[in-house]
Design a protein around this nucleic acid. Structure first.
Length: 480
DNA sequence: ATGTAC
């Protein structure tokens, strides 16, 4: 069905795949490339039929999603561009957040203490089915309109200091501005549900983990500038915009679907939804999408707030937790590349800017900002930094390990015993998990995912990014 | 991913 260019044969981690509808750029080593399901190419071929000049690429964690694969970067010139809810994904603003603590791995050596900590976190970060957050005093409308700026001051423990990398609130963009008149379009039920869900993880691959880091020797200077130390305990959070993002995706998608039927636009896949940026339906979706980005960033902040309180309950008030970074991997927005405004979609793809790139927030201009890459449960996660070579992929890298098995197939294949042994249950090294019923999250076992170390090798090999630190989990909090 | 869904 496809061929690839021999000229690129000298590049071990990149292939230009020539599909009938256009070129697909794939960043992956041989083994990962050859293991890809043909469906991901089928899907790319549909996506490449969306009009106007489109750059499309996959990172090695790519796998099949609805309409568009997870692991996709898709870029148009903003002036003649399209927006696609399918290339954003339904969990709008889903992403990662990492906090540094003043604890060392040795401080959490005892399994008993890790268990105590997980229990304390569970009290403040509800993880049961249909979990409700503890933040009823927050106005949802303020969060949607202003992101972190819409929070009452008590949830900003060290003041809002965007230029200070050590602030608990420091994020790349803490506020996504948009035309707020569109907010009224979403049904009342979603306002209530989203309000209740503020400060909850959600289920599936979302998690909060306590990890210990190992600094990579190649990037020790950068690690030091970021405030990382060997053996340091960090908190990593993976969550998104909960019901709000889903509602935006559904409403925006159905309006865009109407536009497609009216104009007779489409591809072979009816679930691939898209419209030109200058259409009314596309504009409404983009406005609402930004409200979901505000929700997602704030949600991760509130999860971090809850975890900070729990740590302080267990470790005392000398415990400190500062923000390293917050970074989304499901969104679309405008960026300038080579002086041209471009509309960039990332679905399961992470922006990783190199040192000196002007879009870095000021505290990270000299080093490049941290790119936060989760692994699967029980395996390592990574803190990375963009390299100049990332320019050819619009500075996009992978977003994690990437699934290789459906949830149902994983449940059939993996036993609780196997899952327990990958979490080293019963040893001094046990990764403590909040969920007692491991069968309820067995579809998240490492066997459901590609090997994150191989994914990282491809991204590094392709010259897109390099590793600053490897993060090993000590405890993991999952929702159901 | 989602108190899943024509």
């Amino acid at each position: 069905m496809f061929t690839y260019n021999d000229q690129q044969a000298n590049e071990k981690y990149y292939r230009k795949v020539q599909l009938p509808a256009g070129d697909l750029h794939v960043f992956a080593g041989d083994q990962l490339f050859e293991a890809l399901d043909y469906k991901v190419f089928d899907m790319a071929n549909n996506n490449l039929q969306i009009p106007n000049r489109l750059y499309m690429s996959y990172t090695p964690d790519v796998h099949v999603g609805v309409g568009t694969c997870i692991g996709t970067t898709a870029v148009w010139e903003a002036a003649s561009g399209y927006v696609s809810p399918s290339i954003v994904g339904s969990d709008i603003g889903c992403g990662m957040r990492v906090h540094l603590t003043n604890l060392h791995r040795d401080d959490l050596q005892e399994v008993k203490l890790r268990r105590k900590l997980v229990k304390a976190i569970e009290k403040l970060l509800p993880a049961e089915e249909h979990a409700r957050g503890h933040f009823s005093d927050i106005r949802l409308e303020h969060v949607l309109r202003k992101g972190l700026h819409g929070l009452p001051k008590k949830y900003i423990p060290d003041g809002y200091t965007p230029k200070k990398a050590t602030s608990l609130t420091h994020v790349e963009h803490s506020k996504f501005a948009f035309d707020e008149s569109h907010l009224d379009r979403l049904p009342e039920m979603y306002w209530h549900r989203s309000h209740r869900q503020l400060g909850t993880l959600g289920s599936g691959n979302h998690f909060a983990e306590i990890q210990a880091i190992e600094i990579h020797e190649d990037n020790r200077a950068i690690a030091e500038k970021w405030g990382l130390r060997d053996g340091q305990i960090i908190v990593m959070i993976h969550s998104g915009s909960r019901a709000w993002g889903g509602a935006v995706s559904q409403y925006g998608g159905s309006e865009i679907g109407k536009w497609m039927r009216r104009t007779g636009t489409g591809t072979a896949d009816p679930r691939l939804i898209f419209a030109p940026l200058d259409s009314e339906a596309a504009a409404a979706y983009v406005h609402l999408m930004y409200s979901a980005l505000n929700y997602a960033v704030t949600n991760r902040h509130l999860i971090a707030y809850a975890i900070r309180e729990a740590f302080r309950d267990v470790c005392g008030s000398k415990f400190e937790m500062t923000t390293l970074y917050d970074l989304m991997h499901n969104y679309a927005w405008e960026e300038t590349h080579g002086g041209t405004p471009m509309f960039v979609h990332r679905k399961g793809a992470t922006r990783a800017l190199p040192a000196q790139h002007p879009d870095n927030p000021e505290p990270y201009l000299a080093t490049g900002h941290p790119a936060l890459i989760p692994g699967s449960m029980g395996t390592s996660s990574y803190l990375m930094v963009g390299q100049p070579g990332g320019e050819r992929n619009y500075y996009s890298i992978c977003h994690g390990a990437g699934r290789i098995r459906s949830r149902s197939a994983t449940k059939r294949l993996v036993t609780v015993d196997q899952f327990e042994s990958s979490l080293r249950v019963g040893t001094a090294d046990e990764i403590v998990v909040n969920q007692r019923m491991l069968e309820s999250i067995i579809d998240e076992s490492p066997q459901a995912y590609k090997d994150v170390d191989q994914i990282i090798e491809s991204v590094v090999g392709a010259g897109l990014a390099s590793v600053v630190a490897k993060c090993k989990p000590l405890a993991s909090i999952k929702g159901v």
